[in-house]
Design a protein around this nucleic acid. Structure first.
Lengths: 216, 216, 216, 216
DNA sequence: CATGAATGAGAGTTCATTCAT
DNA sequence: TATGAATGAACTCTCATTCAT
């Protein structure tokens, strides 16, 4: 049975904005508030057009207060990446441990991946440009992204091996699938008439069956 | 017989860097040099990490000299977008006027679009974030991008109508195709073992035939 | 008995230059220091020849520190105008509420106005060119200046009505009076042999009695 | 008999803008065109808000062309001052050689001075801020302005001596008169219902007779 | 005589970050 | 813990001025 993604997200978006209202409160909550607020503004305007003041203003705190929770601006950014990656990686591990054909795993990937990247940190992961990061941070993120890609290739390769998937250029197929799903981020609106899951299902159909009509 | 895309681009990349060697030289060449140099650095580092000084330094001119050819930094950026868009739009018009099934047109789209976005301004078009642009410029670019999408949908819809394409959610299919092709920008290297055309052909195959193996 | 205007201004000019000595100090004092320092340099060199660095250097702070107290350079300039205008407007209101002939009010105007425009923000008000301001700021200042003019005309008109002043072109008379007093700014030195009040008295005499000798 | 000031100025304002239309033309004419165009923009926007490009654009020439007629921007500015001063000085010399009482000379001064400063370079002379000039130029202009003031004082002193003028503080009286007339620049519109001469006459009346009504 | 190109110097402004409280 | 103040470094953009043509 399918659960609408809207149900899962407990906290209202404005909840984070009140994290600093009380004098005493769990510092983790506050850190979380900074992170989510930053995420939101990063997504709206982009990293470079977001100043720490924008974030502080939205949280109604002062700029230096942010430095209690993060060492610098980039760390906030990097953390957003990490969250996005972590969630996808969990899913990947689950899929991997499933028994089933490669094709089924690819289908699952599309489902789960689509579900992630239409939400907060997942959206971030896809939309944000990792050239914004510097040095080691950039390397880390790219390594993780590559790892995701390799997992997908693994599933496809398995499909080719178990004959559930047509023989093909695995690398290219992986990018096609990922690219097609990623495009969701650009146009999919969570409040539209279709849920992310429904869209993912359709997408899986399109990608596995292809466009061509074969019944004639 | 297919011609490698590397053959077409006449000027060596370093040619632009010498455009400012002579005091007198046709200004269009210099404008072009600024544009291509900017393009390159924008692609390497991103817009906000690129300062006008970076561009000027690479061209061995001074910063204000750039202002002879462009009104401001954003104009350079916007022009990069426009170039990318223009080339794609030309191709689209050609495809549109072809006779052939919708499926064939989609195939052509993949071919031509892939060829564009693996080169200079095409790469830019896909990789750069249009949130960087402000106001009218952003609106213009988004309008154009949407127009490209609509063309693709038109082809797909035609395919559905002429029964060359399976009935499907046209909007979603269009995004899948575009998304899959766009992913080339991230990983395709023009100097690799495959040409963009070869990759595009494979991609078209994957997308039209689907992943699933049907012969059994 | 008359009190010299020099007695009133408590703070020595150099006091402002020390406002930034302590890290903690009431921010109003610092804002005031910026304003007065700016005023002084504006008067010496003019607005456009004054850079924010000039102001910062004099205060021994850095340029961006100024932005803690003012949004931009023009705001400082505008505030100088506002101060000058405000002080004159207070005086005008007082005069207005006096009982007395129109001629007496004009005399009072000359006294008070002269006293204002020979001091800090009053000097500024007269000497500075409001074309320097842009848009709304310019409009605001001009409106206020016009208001001052209208008050003066009102006094003169009242004088004509109550027969204390010769029938005359009121508008022109108002400008003459204001113009004559304004000229103080150009030549009057507060440390000279006459106080501003003495000069104002003489000026009132000249303007009300005229130059011509009538006793013969 | 009075001559309207509008009759005297032969060339239409736009005439200067065509001085550069012909290939060959008297260089003095062109220099004059630059000067008058600069004057106009200086008066509209002020010196610092006027760039050489503004002037060049209006004349439809290029910026460096201006350097054929003037060494630098300030020279243009200075020349505007000089013109304004020169015209006033001519008038002063004429008045000086008249026979008549001091009061009559003051009246004449008001007439002639008013007429000058309501026109082109005269307006400039009064409105522009000589702090804009640097070094020697500033000194020169100030010397000339002082000279004008001294002439006026001379007339007044003569009037006091010949008993046509009430005994008074001569310096102060001179500034009053000049200040009152100068104020014309701020509000007098050449196309209004009164000519400059009519206004000057009224002004002379006001200043010589005073505001007070003495017939009772 | 006139131009297009180029420059050096400097302007105002922004912002991540740190310090002292 | 959190703040207001301050800074240094950077950026875009402007402009008077000078060359070379």
């Amino acid at each position: 049975m399918r659960v609408s993604i809207e149900k899962r997200k407990a906290a209202k978006p404005s909840a984070h904005l009140k994290a600093f209202a009380d004098r005493r409160r769990d510092p983790d909550t506050k850190r979380e508030a900074v992170l989510h607020t930053a995420l939101q503004i990063f997504m709206e305007r982009g990293y470079w057009q977001t100043s720490l003041n924008d974030i502080a203003d939205k949280l109604k705190i002062t700029k230096p207060a942010i430095y209690h929770y993060f060492h610098n601006k980039e760390e906030i950014y990097l953390e957003c990446y990490r969250r996005g990656i972590a969630r996808v990686e969990e899913d990947l591990e689950q899929i991997r441990q499933h028994r089933g054909t490669g094709l089924e795993k690819v289908g699952e990937f599309i489902q789960k991946y689509a579900s992630q990247i239409t939400r907060d940190f997942g959206r971030f992961l896809v939309r944000q440009d990792d050239r914004d990061l510097s040095g080691t941070a950039k390397a880390e993120v790219r390594r993780c992204k590559r790892s995701i890609d390799h997992h997908l290739r693994e599933f496809i390769q398995q499909g080719v091996d178990d004959a559930s998937i047509r023989p093909c250029n695995v690398k290219l197929a992986a990018f096609s699938v990922a690219g097609a799903v990623n495009s969701l981020v650009v146009w999919f609106l969570p409040n539209g008439d279709l849920t992310a899951e429904q869209v993912a299902a359709e997408l899986a159909q399109t990608l596995t069956q292809g466009l061509v009509r074969k019944d004639r």
